[in-house]
């Protein structure tokens, strides 16, 4: 292998003194760290979105196939809000983060009242109805918002070069490796997700509304007997679930762009997370999101990207096959 770092424009090594090993590429340690950082961003967004799906499944026992479209709507509304509200990117972004989940949540609650309630939350019919809802939301977005991928300006965004420590000939060396960097906004997404999920957990365990939701989850009939308005609880839960997806969409849109087809892959990933984590279990969902998000980043270090996706997918399926009881609250359906 040739001497790396000799190309004039490519490899500034601010830290300088470092034993070069025989590789043409980024060093393994920094590479792994970069992949983990990227994985953490994915995990954060996924955790938020999947919490919504998990909440809906946990309380209502239905699979919402349109969940990905609520995520997409969150991103699209973030674009709409930031384009129409002036006052700088930070203010516009805060407005989007408040308005988009509210609007999307309201829309979802309405869909629950108009459609799902009349289906008596029958699992199979709900799947078909939410597939119909998926098409309606997607195509309505195509007609109004269009087919383009549109960006949203992040409230702040700085490139942060990250340091790395290595045990070299002269003891501990501290340097900034080539390519190892992230952005302040990506770090913010991770932080925001942690805070939001902690808040959700507090809401579910401490607040009266959360208590009612959990009571309904445990036994709908009993809850009715105790005078809990189960139908209103269901509408609220469906709305909150969609709102969480929309919030995830708002957070991701300054990194990715809003596009009317972005919900599909996000839905698949959230499905995986919810199942791996144990249906309806919020804590399990979070753990699974971190697991899936991080492994998506890390596996890509070792395998060719498409092969990595294949292996990860098969791994998830096999985990489900061989550990179904360990991962589920009970048998589905």
């Amino acid at each position: 292998m040739d001497m790396p770092g000799t190309a004039p424009c490519v490899c500034p090594l601010p830290g300088g003194a470092r034993a070069q090993d025989a590789t043409d590429f980024m060093d393994f340690g920094p590479y792994l760290m970069l992949a983990m950082l990227e994985g953490a961003v994915l995990a954060s967004v996924l955790a938020l979105m999947a919490s919504g799906l998990s909440l809906v499944f946990g309380v209502m026992r239905v699979v919402n196939v349109a969940h990905g479209e609520f995520y997409m709507l969150g991103a699209v509304m973030a674009w709409a809000v930031t384009s129409f509200i002036g006052g700088g990117p930070a203010l516009a972004f805060i407005a989007a983060a408040i308005l988009a989940p509210l609007l999307v949540g309201g829309l979802a609650a309405l869909a629950d009242i108009v459609i799902l309630k009349r289906l008596n939350y029958d699992p199979e019919r709900t799947i078909v109805a939410t597939i119909g809802l998926l098409y309606i939301l997607q195509q309505a977005t195509l007609m109004s918002y269009g087919a383009d991928a549109r960006p949203v300006v992040p409230p702040f965004n700085h490139r942060i070069a990250l340091p790395w420590i290595e045990w070299g000939e002269g003891g501990l060396a501290f340097y900034f490796p080539w390519g190892l960097s992230t952005t302040s906004y990506k770090l913010f997404v991770i932080g925001a997700a942690v805070v939001l999920i902690a808040a959700l957990r507090l809401f579910m365990t401490r607040s009266r509304a959360g208590l009612i939701m959990r009571a309904t989850q445990l036994d709908g009939d009993m809850a009715t007997a105790f005078g809990i308005p189960v139908e209103r609880v269901y509408a609220a839960v469906f709305g909150v679930g969609a709102g969480l997806a929309a919030l995830a969409g708002v957070l991701i849109v300054p990194i990715q762009q809003a596009h009317y087809l972005m919900g599909g892959d996000a839905l698949l990933l959230s499905f995986i997370v919810v199942i791996i984590g144990g249906l309806g279990s919020l804590a399990g969902t979070i753990v699974a999101a971190v697991l899936i998000g991080m492994s998506d980043g890390i596996i890509s270090v070792f395998f060719s990207p498409t092969l990595a996706k294949i292996l990860a997918t098969l791994a998830v399926a096999l985990v489900l096959v061989f550990r179904p009881q360990g991962l589920f609250g009970g048998k589905g359906r």
């Binding site: 699979v63 698949l268 199942i275 489900l320 096959v321 179904p324 048998k331 359906r333």
Partner: peptide
């Protein structure tokens, strides 16, 4: 042989995953 060890929603997901893996393959 593999997927029928599961049932209900997890059967849905397992079949979905296998199918995705084949499409990517």
């Amino acid at each position: 042989l593999l997927a029928l060890r599961t049932a209900g929603v997890s059967f849905m997901i397992v079949t979905l995953m296998f199918s995705q893996a084949l499409a990517m393959t």
